[in-house]
């Protein structure tokens, strides 16, 4: 009996310390990568220009769509913009821009200065729509396929590396 207790205690300690060692190599930063593989729910995005609404059906014919949340007041969005411009040249993918908590004039000026990569441009003036996409800070981008399954999520500005990654994915299928 005493022996069993002793062995249990030692195993428990090894287990706890082992987990600590394992966790040391993990990043403690949080991301929403677990959403990858899930389907998008009902989309209801209001067009930037008028009050027409985009829904899931609008994206079913694209082999890939990149949903990009951006705003003119967001500095990192400027950094990622060249990558989006580059990506807009690709045939296999369409970019859906969601203008987040922004003023219309500023947003238009932003696009005039840096170019407009968006096939569809919508707005999320009060930010409520972003919650449906699991967005918690902008810029954030979601790559979906024609079944509206999330292929990849990008939190923070898209880098050159991310861009190549996307191009590889869309041209491989």
């Amino acid at each position: 009996m005493q022996k069993i207790i002793k062995i249990t205690i030692i195993f428990l300690l090894i287990f706890i310390l082992g987990i600590f060692f394992l966790s040391l190599n993990k990043s403690s930063n949080y991301n929403t990568e677990f959403l990858v593989g899930n389907k998008l729910g009902e989309i209801e995005l209001v067009s930037f220009e008028d009050d027409s609404v985009y829904t899931n059906d609008d994206f079913k014919n694209n082999s890939f769509t990149l949903i990009n949340f951006w705003a003119s007041w967001c500095a990192p969005c400027r950094i990622e913009h060249p990558q989006l411009m580059e990506l807009s040249k690709e045939n296999n993918i369409k970019i859906l821009g969601v203008n987040f908590k922004d003023k219309k004039i500023n947003a238009l000026k932003f696009l005039k200065d840096l170019g407009d990569p968006y096939e569809y441009l919508t707005r999320d003036s009060n930010g409520k729509q972003s919650v449906n996409f699991g967005i918690y800070g902008i810029p954030e981008s979601i790559l979906i396929d024609n079944k509206l399954t999330i292929i990849k999520k990008f939190v923070g500005p898209l880098t050159k590396h991310d861009l190549n990654n996307i191009i590889e994915i869309i041209n491989n299928l």
Binding site: N126, G127, K128, Y136
Partner: peptide
């Protein structure tokens, strides 16, 4: 999610404001 160990009640970030709405 964008703050360090705070609930959205304690925060005033964009994320907290959106979530409250």
């Amino acid at each position: 999610l964008v703050c360090q160990g705070q609930s959205i009640a304690d925060s005033n970030s964009d994320f907290a404001i959106t979530l409250k709405m």
